[in-house]
Design a protein around this nucleic acid. Structure first.
Lengths: 332, 332
DNA sequence: CTGAAAGCGCTAACAA
DNA sequence: TTGTTAGCGCTTTCAG
């Protein structure tokens, strides 16, 4: 059923119907007639046709690196919550950590004429800039701080620093590190920088054999921990870039009989549920992921409404949560 | 830029451009011209306009009860993966466990003229049937087995039975249960049924004081475990409807000094990552969530293509994974 | 193989 | 307040 048929059924003009749905002048009488006919027919106007005329789709493209991961899930949850509340819908694109797909989805979003885009970024390349430049709609980047774009991000360096420092203060001597790929500025580079700053401040040397780069998974954390702990000497503390990596490392430690925190302290960033319940509850930096999603969505909606606004960056703070994995009395 | 402007820029007719994008007859010469001009201008045809004409949006509405939860995330991941691969986009609607919102989103999807709907169902009411009846597109229901609809679901009763039986065989005498709301047929009713069947078969009586209903959260599991374990007598085994609930229960046990598996066996359904890493690794039934998502999406796509097909139900099997939380030698 | 033209369902002047 | 009308950007006959 289309607007003409519906208008006829209701005994009013197309315009009246259009006005009813878009809030124009309308007599109560016609309004009542229309409402009644809606109940009868279940008519709902077509978004597509509406979009062709108005160039407003009320759809937002959301690009995420993966769905089954607590942090991205929480960000996405925050995003969709405010988007839905404001009458927008989310076109969700999952890249499965393949950032070439980000470009692909950006193109798709262009065809869909979305009103805006939120990109949960990992690696940001030249290709990304080019693809984003072509989008004629506001874009918000979450999780990375990229010059020239509106961003919502976390204090990765600060969190890694605080966590590492907390361990340093327990008097450890041989710091270990399992990080993420350095091309991921926030998770890879910045967290590593924070770790190194704290190590340096403590006057310690970094043994390269204790430093590894893992993928974002428990399995990968397990493997890297195995490598690190299978040498003659072992670290007495381990900073992991993410909770998943730490979870994998802890799994290995349990198997290998390495005690946490007696033999090695462990800390990581993210505050996943997993860390809370682990056999050695994990010291972590709580990032406000959902808040990040909410903020990003609000930022986007603001930009959509005010058509042209300058890029701005929102950095969210973190909370250090100390749990058993670093609870060791000083041994200096 | 629209098709007319683009056609002019490329020196061809609108029809030629349309044919280029939709695969009609076209000379190589024109094809080349068009391709070149696309590179130059970055033109992409509007999905909305396309949808108005063809009534095909290439969008699928996906309704989920929540995003940050491993099982739904994995189902959704499976869904989006095949949808994207087939050139469809997912309009994601998160109800935050408020099933009135499901009706709302169904209405929205009608306006969006989505090509199909996938509903990760929890509670299914009369309102749902009515709303679904109004949709003129194929619908697949995931997670529940509902008469008259195409469904992809799990063997909830069987999994609960197998898990409970596994515990019964260890010679326990006082079964405990933390379930989900009975209005959720799959998770609430069926899992409870499986549990009770195994208990009955073992010739044991169910102490009502050891049975609780929890929400889908760690916190709720914790609270209910507290209630169950704070009486004079205690259960010596505990079946939980979900891993989150079990996780909460384990958290309480750890606090209360109740040893797993020495004092109480625990098992639950879902195989969340959390169970693997827990201080007492959790015995669980692995449900193939991602496969469910993939199957549902494929089923939907099939229905979309073949316009009219009869409802069918696909029930996925499970795997029992025994871990330490039930590893107790028989004490008969 | 190609272009002109009609029309998808809707909105938004405009004149009444 | 209202209805008429001219499109929005695209597809798709249809005649060439």
């Amino acid at each position: 059923m289309n607007i003409s048929e519906f208008a006829k059924a209701a005994g009013v003009s197309k315009s009246a119907v259009s006005r009813y749905f878009n809030g124009g002048y309308l007599s109560d009488e016609k309004r009542a007639k229309i409402e009644e006919t809606i109940k009868l027919t279940g008519y709902a106007p077509s978004n597509s046709a509406h979009a062709v005329k108005t160039r407003i789709t009320k759809q937002i493209g959301v690009i995420i690196p993966k769905l089954s991961g607590e942090s991205t899930a929480r960000v996405t949850e925050g995003i969709t919550e405010v988007l839905n509340a404001e009458g927008y819908q989310s076109l969700l694109a999952n890249t499965s950590n393949d950032y070439n797909k980000e470009i692909h989805f950006l193109d798709l979003f262009k065809q869909n004429r979305v009103d805006g885009v939120i990109l949960l970024a990992t690696v940001f390349t030249e290709m990304h800039s080019r693809a984003l430049a072509k989008m004629r709609v506001p874009v918000i980047i979450v999780g990375q701080n990229i010059k020239g774009y509106s961003c919502v991000c976390h204090d990765d360096e600060g969190a890694a620093y605080a966590l590492t420092k907390l361990m340093m203060e327990k008097g450890v001597k041989y710091p270990g590190f399992i990080g993420a790929n350095m091309s991921d500025i926030a998770t890879g580079k910045n967290r590593r920088a924070g770790f190194e700053r704290a190590v340096k401040e403590a006057g310690l040397n970094l043994n390269k054999a204790f430093c590894e780069v893992a993928k974002f998974s428990i399995d990968s954390g397990y493997e890297k921990a195995k490598q690190i702990f299978s040498g003659k000497t072992r670290p007495d503390c381990l900073f992991c870039a993410t909770d998943s990596i730490a979870a994998g490392a802890m799994l290995y430690c349990r198997e290998a009989g390495i005690k946490i925190p007696e033999d090695v302290l462990i800390a990581s960033v993210g505050d996943n549920r997993i860390g809370q319940l682990a056999y050695a509850p994990l010291t972590t930096a709580h990032f406000h992921y959902k808040t990040a999603g909410i903020s990003a969505a609000n930022m986007l909606l603001t930009e959509i409404k005010s058509s042209n606004s300058i890029p701005r960056t929102l950095q969210l703070d973190f909370d250090i949560i100390e749990r058993k994995s670093t609870m060791k009395t000083e041994t200096v």
